[in-house]
């Protein structure tokens, strides 16, 4: 439980810091999606993953497994999906 709460809070903080200058009023919740809700483009996704890796001081979280589904690349991601993914990786 502690890990879950910790990861969610930290990822939320990373995301809030990431979009601080974007002028968005969107509340950040687990259901918040990067593309649909926050207007991410592909460069933003790359930068965000780098920001997460930096925050967690890990570069081997294997985000490609989250991004690729059945050989295709996903169209969007929610914060909740990223939280679950990072939690899973930190436990492994």
């Amino acid at each position: 439980m502690l890990i879950e709460l910790n990861v969610e809070n930290r990822l939320k903080a990373v995301l809030e810091d990431f979009i601080e200058d974007w002028g968005l009023d969107e509340p950040i919740e687990r259901a918040t999606t990067l593309v649909e809700d926050l207007g991410f483009d592909s460069i933003d996704v790359i930068q965000f993953i780098v920001a997460i890796e930096t925050a967690f001081e890990q570069r081997n979280l294997g985000f490609h497994e989250l991004i690729m589904k059945d050989g295709r690349y996903v169209d969007d991601l929610s914060l909740g999906e990223m939280v679950e993914f990072v939690e899973q990786r930190l436990r492994a």
């Binding site: 593309v35 991410f40 483009d41 592909s42 460069i43 996704v45 790359i46 993953i49 570069r59 081997n60 294997g62 985000f63 490609h64 991004i67 690729m68 690349y73 996903v74 169209d75 969007d76």
Partner: peptide, 17 residues
Amino acid sequence: SAEQKEEMLAQLRLLGY
């Protein structure tokens, strides 16, 4: 690592870049 590079490349492919 090679795996990390591949990961970055995969990220670029996301969302149509």
